[in-house]
């Protein structure tokens, strides 16, 4: 990573991005309970350092493919909080006009390609986006986020193999939060060292503390630079933990409360704040200013979603085909 990116501004921005996500998700949970948001809602709380850290490495020309736990990725990528919130409300002003909801946020103007709710289903898509860039001779990177659950799917292995075989500009970001919904990784995988799997495909791999925003930012920048330089795909395993249940429907019966408490001690936000304070980059007034800016953005997003309009039912069959048959 270049030195200037270690700048105080960069470190403060990591905090700002993590806070934007944390507060957005807390609000989303509240709005879910208020029945403003329906369907499935998967919160990213606990994993914010990954979206905040990794997204910095990408340019506007690069592409991002994500999962159904993607609010944080969308926010960090620059998808407007208001358009995300309105989508979760099912409003016409939502980024997908109410067709997608929480699990399917897309914004083509940001090259943010979802919002994919089939576990591992986004990996082949990312492979194809990278293939298109390679065939067109564009030095762009496609970053694909997925969880440890995806590693058990065939599409993960097919994609890993092809990405290396075709030397595609693909950055594979595996957020290992230790659970595939309710199934602990040791109960799902015979080999739980995910980097070994990548290495078996001859893909360079690195395990990073996904609770450390700066570590994620540094590793992602290095990996992205290698991918962009034409060295082929890279794999990062980002160890992390979700502090909330899998979704709003999950009673969380399969996790030990002590385990959750232990991981909360590694919360990426206080950890990053502590570091910045130690380095003299942050004081209470500065944190307060960031929090206020985040709260303003969020309040505007909620107001926008509340004021949003409903898609007319007459538009139901729009966008199934380019031409409505």
């Amino acid at each position: 990573m270049k030195t200037e990116e270690h700048s105080p501004e960069m470190k403060i921005d990591l905090l700002r991005q993590m806070l934007r996500i944390r507060r957005f998700e807390e609000k989303a949970a509240e709005l879910y309970s208020a029945a403003k948001i329906r369907g499935f809602l998967h919160l990213y709380i606990g994993q914010e350092a990954i979206a905040a850290g990794a997204m910095r490495a990408l340019t506007a020309e690069d592409a991002v493919v994500s999962t159904y736990r993607e609010h944080g990725h969308a926010l960090a990528r620059g998808v407007a909080a208001a358009a995300i919130m309105a989508e979760m409300y099912g409003k016409a002003e939502g980024c997908c006009h109410g067709r997608g909801g929480s699990m399917h946020l897309f914004d083509v103007s940001k090259r943010f390609y979802g919002g994919n709710a089939i576990v591992a289903g986004g990996l082949p898509l990312a492979l194809g986006l990278a293939l298109a860039d390679k065939l067109a001779g564009r030095a762009r990177v496609t970053a694909c986020f997925f969880g440890d659950g995806a590693v058990a799917e065939g599409e993960f292995h097919e994609t890993m193999n092809l990405a290396v075989l075709w030397k595609l500009p693909l950055l594979l970001l595996c957020e290992n939060n230790l659970y595939a919904m309710g199934t602990a990784i040791a109960r799902a995988l015979s080999e739980t060292d995910l980097c070994k799997k990548a290495e078996s495909y001859r893909m360079p791999a690195e395990r990073i503390d996904g609770m450390d925003a700066l570590a994620v930012a540094v590793a992602s920048a290095d990996a992205t630079a290698a991918v962009r330089a034409g060295e082929g795909p890279r794999f990062l395993e980002l160890t992390t933990y979700r502090f909330r249940p899998h979704s709003m429907f999950d009673p969380d019966l399969y996790r030990d409360k002590a385990e959750i408490a232990e991981w909360k001690k590694r919360d990426p936000l206080p950890r990053h704040i502590g570091r910045l304070k130690e380095e003299g980059l942050l004081d209470a007034a500065k944190i307060d200013a960031i929090e206020r800016a985040v709260a303003d953005e969020l309040a505007q997003a909620v107001a926008f979603a509340d004021a949003g309009t409903l898609e007319p039912v007459e538009s139901l069959t729009r966008d199934v085909y380019a031409r409505t048959p």
């Binding site: 067709r99 083509v108 966008d319 380019a322």
Partner: peptide, 8 residues
């Protein structure tokens, strides 16, 4: 196409 509100 549909899920993205016609973006793709």
């Amino acid at each position: 196409r549909h899920m993205t509100g016609g973006q793709l």
